[in-house]
Design a protein around this nucleic acid. Structure first.
Lengths: 206, 206
DNA sequence: GTCTATAAGAAGATAGAC
DNA sequence: GTCTATCTTCTTATAGAC
């Protein structure tokens, strides 16, 4: 890893723990293994480091989102993918989303950074809302709408279903961000939640 | 309001917006209407201001919690209170909780401060978890357990019910903290959610 | 209790040698 | 690209007059 990438890496780690204002360029330099003035050969200022992180993480998110929406245009093709929806698949969808958000090192650190900076920087607050409230709910509402249309789930308000499916995921996620030791307990609650969700909205098997 | 109280007041406002490390004593003093050195006649240090806020807000929370748990020991008496549970009452319980968390000026600012400081200060992270995850879920699980025992709701896992009832409240709350203009939309979603919850878990009327 | 003046130190950033 | 030395500004806190 080049020095420039290492600077971004350790800066994200520090920003996600202490927040931008409580991280000093000396700390970044020390974590990288150089002296503070050397940082300025790679970035013009501390703010430029922050901006570079922001840009890179948004790029990655766009990539992931584009990947997830797959055939968003073509509901027919998506329907086919979920042809055989089952409790097990709903559980996998929820647990998978949770695991990805929680375990991907960059996703986790960036979410923590957004959380810390959300009120100081309106743009970051809006980003947090988009990435962790509006996009997931809209995406899941679309999926539920297709599953209902295909007769695989019952229900009449996909958006409320998405709110009810996703909100516990989000809350358990913020819980584990504060205390990673809770992951096992959170996973158990999440599984119970999804099974309950399936019991409520799933079509009877026989 | 005495100067000492005013210092705590404006400090909480500033800390909840920028975070402890990004607030300077000069800003606090300016907001109070005095010069920075005068602050030190009321508090020995900036940290002491922060600690005083923390202590005061925890005192208020204990007070509120004690009030809410009412007859927590005496499930019989609590049962009586909820004798005539209805959709309208569930809605009022959820909306009421939401409104209180969102509109009480001190509660809202303190929550934002905890949110900002949660990763830098483990104690504050634990406090946020207690006040906004564990206590509400435990409290609501107890209520649901009583309502089930009394035949007013159906369901077999009060804790999962509490998770499903409360998580959307929490998510909509964090959403509105970032963007208060969303309150009306959030309130509408919340009401739909609770009605859906009641449809799933409520005993049929006839 | 509030002020002005100021100390003491921290933090971001630059200059210039290597 | 990394270093040491240094500049400038900001920030917390104290001293002492009123």
């Amino acid at each position: 890893m080049g020095t420039k990438e290492k600077i971004l890496d350790v800066s994200l780690e520090l920003f996600s723990q202490k927040g931008y204002g409580n991280v000093y360029v000396g700390q970044i330099a020390e974590a990288v293994g150089i002296k503070a003035p050397s940082l300025y050969k790679h970035f013009r200022s501390k703010r430029e480091i922050f901006d570079a992180i922001l840009e890179e993480m948004q790029r990655r998110y766009q990539e992931t989102a584009a990947g997830l929406q797959m055939n968003g245009q073509d509901a027919g093709a998506d329907g086919a993918i979920f042809q055989k929806v089952s409790e097990e698949q709903l559980v996998q969808m929820g647990i998978g989303l949770f695991r990805y958000f929680l375990h991907d090192e960059y996703v986790r650190k960036f979410r923590k950074m957004l959380t810390i900076e959300q009120f100081a920087d309106k743009e970051l607050g809006a980003l947090l809302t988009r990435q962790y409230v509006e996009d997931p709910i809209e995406y899941q509402a679309q999926i539920f709408e297709m599953l209902i249309a295909g007769g695989l789930l019952k229900g009449d308000d996909p958006k409320i279903m998405a709110l009810e499916f996703y909100s516990p995921i989000y809350m358990l996620l913020t819980w584990c961000d504060r205390d990673p030791k809770k992951e096992k307990e959170a996973m158990g609650l999440l599984e119970s939640h999804i099974k309950q969700f399936n019991k409520q909205y799933g079509r009877k098997k026989k």
